[in-house]
Simulated assay, not measured.
Amino acid sequence: MKFNPIIESFLVHLSAPNVDQFINLLLAIPAQGYGNSLAYIMSEWSQLQGEIQGAYQIKVTTTALALLISTRHPELSRIEVNGHLVKTSAGITTRSKARVTPDNWTKIPLPSKIFALLADTLAEIQEQVGDDADNIDEEDSDWEEVQNGDATPHDIMYSASVPSNANPSVEHLNAMAKVFDEDEDDSYDDDLAKTDSLNEVKLLDFLTNTFVNLWDSDRPLFEYLCQGLTNPQRVAVQKVLQK
């Protein structure tokens, strides 16, 4: 069965707010060629995330990645995934040369990759929104309503960003089942978008909550992850921290 990041994202959301338990489950399941299923899934997912298209699909996968990194599960840092493509030779790469010389990638810890992917999406949203991104009223953010509570950082981020009716309906589960069937066409993604309450999530707010939460709860980790960002990614993150 071909790996599908959308399916894995659904499973992450279904496990929330106990995402760390889902991570532990994947760690206990072996995977051929990898230390465990989590290593396999995240290796594939981190490579495919940048190719995902569609507002709903991007929203579901991006928020799932945010939930994963917000757990700060220690095993995440032990997984290495592809980072940046290494250019091994100058000049034009022909098809024949590409077949002989496979791509070489740097290896980076999984949290660094997820952090960069989230920063990429944040930068794209800010670019689309333009000046409006700098004028968002903080009083309109759900973050203000929960940041002084007694919940854990992960619970705060999840409750602040996900609709209260996020539990899947029968229609939503039926649509999910059709997506699991490889023989079905992509039209069922539209069915999911209509029935999934996650489609109501404001992705800019969700990502803002994610970065602010990590900044407040684990400053050393946040600063370490920022070291691997490109300048545009770093600027995008700094904008939400300055609000």
Rank of each mutant, 00 (worst) to 15 (best):
I114P: 03
D137E: 12
L214T: 02
S197A: 15
N174C: 08
A90T: 07
A175H: 03
I136P: 05
V212C: 10
A66I: 00
Q21L: 04
Q49D: 08
V19I: 13
V235Y: 04
F22W: 11
N18P: 04
D103F: 07
C226S: 15
T88L: 10
F10G: 08
Y56M: 00
G50A: 10
L76A: 12
L203Q: 06
D218C: 11
L198R: 05
N213D: 11
L117I: 09
V60Y: 03
Q47V: 10
L207F: 03
Y56F: 14
V235D: 12
T61N: 10
G130M: 01
P220K: 02
G54F: 03
A236E: 06
C226P: 04
E127I: 03
T121V: 02
L122K: 02
G91Q: 01
V235P: 03
P74C: 05
I92C: 03
E80L: 14
L173N: 12
F222C: 03
P74K: 00
N165S: 14
E184S: 14
A116S: 15
R72L: 08
S161F: 04
Q233K: 09
S169A: 12
L76N: 11
A31V: 06
S15F: 09
D186V: 08
E200V: 04
D190Q: 09
S164N: 10
D185C: 11
W215G: 02
M176E: 05
R95Q: 11
E8S: 12
I136W: 01
I52F: 01
E171S: 13
D142F: 03
T152A: 12
E171D: 14
N165F: 04
F211S: 07
L14I: 01
L110F: 10
N199A: 15
L225S: 08
S70L: 10
V86T: 08
S141G: 04
V162Y: 00
V12T: 14
Y34A: 11
S37Q: 14
I79G: 11
C226L: 04
R78M: 08
S89G: 06
K97W: 03
E223L: 12
V146F: 13
D142W: 02
T121K: 07
I52L: 05
L67S: 15
I29E: 14
V12M: 04
L38I: 07
D216A: 15
L110M: 07
